[in-house]
């Protein structure tokens, strides 16, 4: 049934950053953190978006091309059509966990953090990185969940001046974590996977790829080193990036 398109209405639009908007819909899905839905804009295209929240279904969409530009123009009461959820979710390990998100890659990590019971969220540290202060999404939301939030910016306009990977490495040298989860640019995730591997820490990454059939695992367009990202991923063990 997940393959059947469902049409929902937008009940709320939140402006997250200059590039990112959150769309809250009048529907729910049975999704696990790390999974995604395929959003279809009739007559234009269909693209994957990570689920931020399953009840009500919330999608966080960064404006990166023609399809997302069009989605950004949608208002309360407008329709959103989607199928899914699809993909393999994160395996959540109990204990102290580190989340490392690059830009809007932080989205699936938010669903992960919010799925952990409130009283255990103080054990979650999240590093969010972006080029500049204006592009840091979800920082306030993670704080509200009760997570420890560390920010990095390339230009030093907020938090640590430098990359998420540098801050993550410092933190992992100092403190003991039972798991690391990362989503963002490939170079960032590869570095996080390498650091975690060297320290023998459980690590999962959410790989971004270009989807065509999106979830069916049939067309081969999203394959990466022989892995079918849309179906066997997007969440993989960090080892696949080593």
């Amino acid at each position: 049934m997940d393959n059947i398109y469902r049409t929902a209405k937008i009940t709320k639009v939140e402006v997250e950053t200059s590039k990112v908007k959150n769309f809250i819909l009048d529907t729910k899905v049975k999704a696990f953190p790390g999974q995604y839905v395929m959003v279809w804009i009739p007559g234009l295209n269909e693209k994957p978006f990570g689920v931020v929240q399953s009840l009500p279904l919330t999608l966080s969409i960064a404006k990166v091309g023609p399809t997302t530009e069009l989605i950004h123009k949608l208002k309360i009461g407008d329709k959103i059509t989607f199928r899914g959820p699809y993909g393999q979710p994160f395996t959540i390990i109990s204990g102290k966990i580190l989340l490392v998100g690059g830009g809007y890659g932080v989205v699936p990590l938010y669903f992960l953090a919010s799925s952990i019971p409130a009283k255990k969220r103080s054990k979650i540290t999240v590093i969010i990185g972006a080029r500049t202060k204006k592009e840091l999404p979800f920082a306030a939301k993670f704080k509200r969940l009760g997570c420890k939030v560390l920010l990095t910016t390339d230009d030093g306009s907020s938090g640590f001046k430098g990359f998420t990977t540098q801050l993550a490495e410092k933190l992992l040298d100092k403190e003991k974590f039972s798991a690391v989860y990362s989503c963002g640019p490939m170079v960032m995730m590869r570095k996080i996977a390498q650091i975690s591997h060297a320290k023998k820490i459980f690590c999962q990454v959410s790989v971004e790829s270009f989807f065509k059939c999106g979830g069916f695992g049939i067309c081969g367009e999203c394959c990466f080193n022989g892995l079918i990202v849309c179906r066997e991923g997007p969440v993989f063990d960090g080892k696949v990036l080593l």
Binding site: N3, I4, M38, W40, L44, N45, E46, K47, F211, K212, C213, G214, F216, I218, C219
Partner: peptide, 19 residues
Amino acid sequence: GHNNPIFIEAAEGAFMNAV
């Protein structure tokens, strides 16, 4: 190729594609 959707479930036991 064509834009998405390129592959859909068309009916019980039937899929349809236009890649």
